[in-house]
Simulated scan of single mutants.
Amino acid sequence: MMTDRSTLRRLMAEKETVITCGCGDAISAKIINEVDGFDGVLSSGFTLAAMAMGLPDAELYSRSDNVYAVSNMCYVLDKPLIADIDTAYGNAVTTIKTVNDFERAGASGVVIEDQISPKRCPICVTDLNTTISAEEAAGKIRAAAENRLYKDTLIIARTDITNVEERNRRAQMYLEAGADLVQGISKSYTASGNMVENIKQFVDAMDGRVSLVVCGGLDSLTRKDIEYIKPKICHFALVPINYMYPALRKAIEFVGENHEQAGIPLEKANHSELVNFLGMSKIGEQEKKYIPQIDC
């Protein structure tokens, strides 16, 4: 399917805030694709690591693993996808190849962070990882912006700095280096004071050019809060994994304990509905159209 590459920028021009849902697998992407309230998808490194490998978000999957997952998601999407590409897996030169790989996989945008590699997800640890220098990080953003394959590819620069002054300084540097949007981590908004006002101040300081991820300490943000803050993009990054994990665990534990499926205290998918959602009827149509029927 895959979206036209100009769609994301058109949505950003038309809407005050573009809304995405995060995921790490193609079936979640396919569901998001059918839900009218979402403009696009964010491939979540946290979710990808959890669903594909059963591991924490500590850059334990490779660039190839990530590209493959994004390619599968984009194949079932006609909404734009923004790819979480962690630290871009190396230095500024490596970043060029990384961004190009994700563009070829179908991503309409990428998120690059300024942690050292291997990174550690800031909502998974109490002690934050070390960041590279602002100058090196800006060089990676400039390399990404100047060497993207498509002019419409969105470059989002994330800083994992929690000190407000330094976070803002870095964010401005990254915008000057060619980032389209900047992104702070949740811990930079929640250390002290009013969380909503802290985010609003960052958005205003960046002239609205902010990507906001609703996770970690930001889960309590309401629709009214987001409409007040006015980020250019707002990602509900961990919705599928946060609600899938307890449901899966409950179903599997029930069967493990009772050795039967009957009575699992959860809603069960209708098999025909699931098969149709996955597109089996289309496979049948394609078989009839393209495979010759030979009488034996």
Rank of each mutant, 00 (worst) to 15 (best):
T7V: 14
T7D: 09
L11D: 01
C21Y: 01
G24E: 08
A26W: 11
A26P: 04
K30I: 01
E34R: 13
E34W: 00
L42Y: 13
S43R: 00
S43Q: 12
F46I: 04
F46L: 12
A52F: 03
M53P: 00
D57N: 01
S64L: 11
D65A: 07
A69F: 07
V70Q: 02
M73I: 10
C74S: 10
D78K: 11
K79A: 05
A83W: 02
K97A: 14
F102Q: 04
F102C: 03
S108M: 10
G109S: 08
I112Y: 05
I112G: 09
I116H: 08
S117W: 15
N129S: 14
I132M: 11
A137C: 12
A138L: 08
A138M: 09
A144I: 08
A144C: 09
E146L: 14
N147P: 05
N147D: 06
L149W: 05
D152P: 03
I156T: 05
T159H: 08
D160T: 09
D160P: 07
T162S: 08
N163C: 08
N163D: 15
L175S: 10
L175C: 12
L181R: 04
K187A: 13
A191D: 11
N194L: 03
N198C: 05
Q201T: 13
V203N: 06
D204C: 03
D204W: 03
M206D: 04
V213I: 12
E227D: 15
E227M: 04
I229Y: 00
K230T: 04
K232Y: 00
H235G: 02
A237I: 03
N242H: 07
Y245D: 02
A247P: 02
L248Q: 09
K250T: 14
A251K: 03
A251F: 04
F254P: 07
E257C: 04
E260H: 13
Q261H: 11
G263V: 06
A269Q: 08
N270F: 06
E273G: 07
N276D: 15
Q293C: 05
I294F: 12
C296G: 09
C296P: 13
